[in-house]
Amino acid sequence: MRIHWRRVVTRRRGSLTRRAAYAAVGSLVVGLLSVLPASPAAAATGQISGLAGKCVDVAGASSANGTPVQLYDCNGTGAQQWNVGSDGTIRALGKCLDVTGNSTADGAVLQLWDCTGGANQRWVVTAARDIVSIAADKCVDVTGNNSANGTRLQIWTCTGAANQKWSAPATGGDPSPGGFVVSEAQFNQMFPNRNSFYTYSGLTAALGAYPAFAKTGSDTVRRQEAAAFLANVNHETGGLVHVVEQNTANYPHYCDWGQPYGCPAGQAAYYGRGPIQLSWNFNYKAAGDALGIDLLNNPWLVQNDSAVAWKTALWYWNTQTGPGTMTPHNAMVNQRGFGETIRSINGSLECDGRNPAQVQSRVDAYQRFISILGTTPGANLYC
């Protein structure tokens, strides 16, 4: 089979200084189950403290829907006793920490609400002390960095600042990212001839970098996203066979000397590597900044460390729009279809009739993986 090796030409879009600690292996995933139990399982209860040593507090100790969640002096009352559960919820007074209006926008405020099982009530507590909204991929934040009593809490793009750092009760669960919808047996079935470099453990170790991946929406949507990601990876690497780009003549072409940081690893150091075939110096710089790894100076990490390789693929999938109009992650969770993921990865060369055979290769893999995962493919498979 002829492999089409894609040049990743996406330049940085806005700030890509995604928190390094959030990307670290060892993030504590606090549950990602699709159906919430009546009460949180494997939970730990206590105060959640943050800026200026103050606590996450339910205003007026009211359990009414819509009650603001705020910063307040720690006092040990029930309004500050939070149940951090392995089901992904954070609860107080019998109700859930909730992002108002199901919003994913910066500045969306937090409230108390009946537990519904919605994505806006799912959270990840990381080893770096971030509390991350699964739906928005944003951090619980003290508005305006203001430590005054009564300051409202909101979600905001994760920055690593002190007003986004929290000490929460530990659940005592497994600190590795769990609950991936693809089992190791299914992974092996999908990639029977894969290179030993592409380990299942490397993939699951990388999942903590982007906890919303394959853990947003219904069970069907989560399985569809996992299948879509792996189908595109399958196409890029010939079934997870190739770790590096095979056409070595291309290697010197991936250095953009117009970037202020140049190509410190060498003119020919930024060739395609890993599951998504990351290439170009500016993409190594952007991915490295987002993941907290110096890939600009050491791009070889992507071909030597399985978890790093998988993280670069997840970085592209979750944060980059490429030649499309949305990230592949958003395409799947917003039901835009598998075809939109192709557009975001290589649409300028494959979509709109440019290379139907390549598109068909991706679709065939997607349908095969969907069958292995026991779900339906959804609409809009082609681009």
Rank of each mutant, 00 (worst) to 15 (best):
D87E: 13
S62I: 10
R6T: 12
D130C: 01
C158L: 06
V243C: 08
T312C: 05
I48R: 14
A268D: 15
T126F: 02
T45I: 15
G94V: 06
G374R: 01
Q320W: 05
A170E: 08
Q367T: 08
F338A: 13
T204I: 12
N330E: 15
G337M: 11
D87S: 09
G118F: 04
L33I: 15
A119R: 03
A357P: 03
L153H: 08
C158P: 05
I90Q: 00
P175R: 11
G66I: 09
N232A: 03
Y261W: 15
A41W: 13
D352K: 10
A309C: 05
M326K: 10
C115H: 08
D87A: 12
N283L: 04
T45H: 12
A41N: 14
Q224L: 04
P356E: 14
R362T: 04
T151N: 01
E245V: 03
R343P: 05
V125D: 03
N83S: 10
L230R: 00
I131M: 02
A64E: 12
S306Y: 02
A287M: 02
L295P: 05
Q267P: 03
T116V: 06
I90T: 05
S103I: 01
W5F: 13
Y210N: 02
V25L: 09
T116G: 10
M1Q: 05
S103D: 08
Q335A: 10
N65I: 10
R19Q: 11
V181G: 04
R13I: 08
N65T: 13
A21K: 11
Y261N: 14
G288P: 06
L349A: 15
Q186K: 13
N234F: 08
D219S: 06
V233S: 02
C115P: 07
T77Q: 15
D106V: 06
Q360I: 04
C55A: 15
L112G: 00
A61E: 14
V308E: 02
A269C: 08
S279W: 01
S103A: 10
V30I: 06
H242M: 04
N283P: 03
S348L: 11
G272E: 09
N283V: 02
K95Q: 11
S306F: 00
W123C: 02
A162I: 03
S34K: 08
R129A: 07
A43N: 15
V35L: 09
R7A: 07
